[in-house]
Amino acid sequence: MEKYLRVGVISSSHGVRGEAKVFPTTDDVQRFKKLKTCILDTGREYKELHIESVKFFKQMVILKFKEIASIDEVMQYKGKDLLVTRDQAVKLEENEYFICDLIGLKVVTDEGEDFGILTDVIQTGANDVYAVKCPNGKEVLLPVIDECILDVDLERQQVTAHIMPGLVD
Rank of each mutant, 00 (worst) to 15 (best):
R17D: 15
V108R: 08
G125Q: 10
I117E: 11
D114F: 11
F56E: 13
V107S: 00
F98Y: 10
E73D: 12
G137M: 09
L118E: 10
E155I: 01
C134D: 05
F65A: 12
D128N: 14
V90K: 04
L142E: 04
G8C: 10
G15T: 10
I145N: 07
R44Q: 15
V121P: 08
V168A: 01
T42W: 10
V140T: 13
I145W: 04
C38W: 01
E155D: 08
A20C: 06
E93C: 09
D128I: 04
C38E: 09
L141M: 10
N136D: 15
V61W: 03
Y130L: 14
V108I: 14
I99V: 11
E139H: 05
A69V: 09
V90Q: 02
K55G: 09
Q157D: 03
D153I: 02
I71P: 04
F115A: 00
I163N: 02
K34I: 07
K47E: 14
Y97T: 05
H14G: 04
E73W: 00
I163A: 03
P143L: 11
D120I: 03
T25W: 01
V129Q: 05
K34D: 15
Q30E: 15
Q158I: 09
E48A: 06
V54F: 00
G18N: 07
G43V: 06
H162V: 06
Q30A: 13
V22L: 04
A126D: 13
G79D: 11
K33Q: 11
V140G: 05
N127H: 15
D41V: 06
E139D: 06
E52I: 08
Y97S: 06
A131L: 02
L40A: 01
P24A: 12
K33H: 13
S12L: 08
G166I: 01
D27K: 02
G125A: 11
L35A: 02
R6F: 07
L5I: 14
Y4M: 12
C100V: 15
P165L: 00
C148L: 08
V152S: 00
L142W: 05
P165N: 03
Q88T: 00
E139G: 03
V132N: 09
D169W: 07
P135V: 14
V168N: 09
V159R: 01
P135D: 13
H50N: 14
G15V: 12
V107E: 03
G137H: 13
Y130I: 07
V129H: 06
N127Y: 15
K21I: 11
K3R: 12
R31N: 07
A89D: 03
I117W: 03
R86E: 08
H14F: 12
M164Y: 14
Y77P: 02
K55A: 12
E45I: 07
M164K: 09
E96V: 02
Q123A: 13
T42D: 15
V168T: 12
K64E: 14
D120K: 08
Q158V: 12
L83Y: 04
P135E: 14
L102M: 02
